[in-house]
């Protein structure tokens, strides 16, 4: 009896093998496919010379109406002002922290002076090609001293996120609003009240460009509430456990909405939106810790 079977032509056999390999790689756990990242780097480098100018041109073409005033000067002044406010608040926070330590008479703990941070300004050359990810590709890599977990800001003090992966010439930044961002799963922040006090809150990304979290009910020494969160209030980072000293008091965003927590109706929940759309930034500033740079010789570890 004649045997009937399907036999592919040699070219199609190679194609079938390639597809089988892709299927295997597509299903293999992430821990076994880390090497794929090395293939991505040349591709991004190849595309960046075109995607960078395209991004610049499209952003320029869709920018809000230009005013008669010198926009660059105004922007610089606003950035300087925001930076000064952030430094002031950071110093105040540091002072409070130092005072607490001194009060505790913990002489064994060396006072941690403010860590200096070097700033690298770099253009965003691309975004991820898939809607599920808002990772930004920034043209600044370990050759410029950028390292994994460096803090990234935009417009001076608006926190963007952290460097998640770095190669020689490129850094990949996960915005704090990305649901997949491990750093912003629980972001400790402070809703700044008008009386210079703050209400602590624990924020998580919503996946819609915002973060949300319950606000702590804080009371002053007299037992009176320090204040209530309200729309438009600035929310600043205050998370000494997971973020470096120079990142404290960076702006997370402004309160867009205040609502009651579903599980605890008396507790207030805030929805915080960054002051700029973090997925549409054209240029960012990477704050590299000088201490880390000198320890590691400025070479960011790629992973």
């Amino acid at each position: 009896m004649a045997r009937h079977g399907v036999q592919l032509a040699p070219a199609d056999r190679v194609l079938a093998a390639a597809l089988a390999a892709m299927l295997l790689l597509g299903l293999a756990p992430i821990r076994y496919t880390g090497w794929v990242a090395w293939l991505a780097e040349p591709v991004v480098r190849l595309i960046a010379p075109l995607s960078g100018p395209v991004a610049s041109v499209t952003r320029w073409a869709t920018r809000p109406g230009a005013a008669d005033l010198d926009e660059r000067d105004i922007t610089r002044l606003i950035e300087d002002r925001d930076l000064a406010i952030q430094r002031h608040l950071r110093e105040r926070e540091l002072n409070a922290e130092l005072r607490r330590r001194i009060e505790d008479l913990n002489a064994a703990i060396a006072l941690n002076p403010d860590l200096a941070a070097r700033q690298v300004t770099a253009p965003v050359v691309a975004r991820a090609s898939d809607p599920s990810s808002s990772v930004l590709t920034v043209r600044a890599g370990s050759s410029l001293g950028v390292g994994v977990r460096d803090v990234v800001t935009v417009r001076g003090v608006q926190l963007v996120g952290r460097v998640a992966r770095v190669t020689g010439g490129t850094a990949y930044v996960t915005p704090i609003t990305d649901e997949g961002n491990a750093d912003s799963k629980r972001l400790r922040a402070m809703v700044m009240l008008e009386n210079d006090f703050g209400l602590a809150c624990l924020l998580t990304p919503t996946g819609e460009g915002t973060l949300t979290g319950d606000v702590e009910d804080a009371r002053g020494p007299d037992g009176e509430p320090l204040g209530e969160p309200a729309e438009g209030m600035t929310v600043r980072l205050l998370d000494h456990d997971y973020w470096p000293s120079h990142a404290q008091m960076l702006v997370v965003g402004t309160v867009e909405r205040v609502e009651s927590a579903p599980d605890q109706p008396l507790r207030r929940r805030v929805v915080v939106r960054p002051t700029v759309d973090l997925t549409r930034v054209g240029e960012v500033t990477v704050r590299t810790s000088e201490a880390r740079s000198s320890d590691e010789g400025g070479s960011g570890a790629a992973r």
């Binding site: 991820a128 599920s132 990810s133 990772v135």
Partner: peptide
């Protein structure tokens, strides 16, 4: 290769 997905 141009899709970078954040890990949790």
């Amino acid at each position: 290769l141009t899709w970078h997905l954040p890990r949790t």
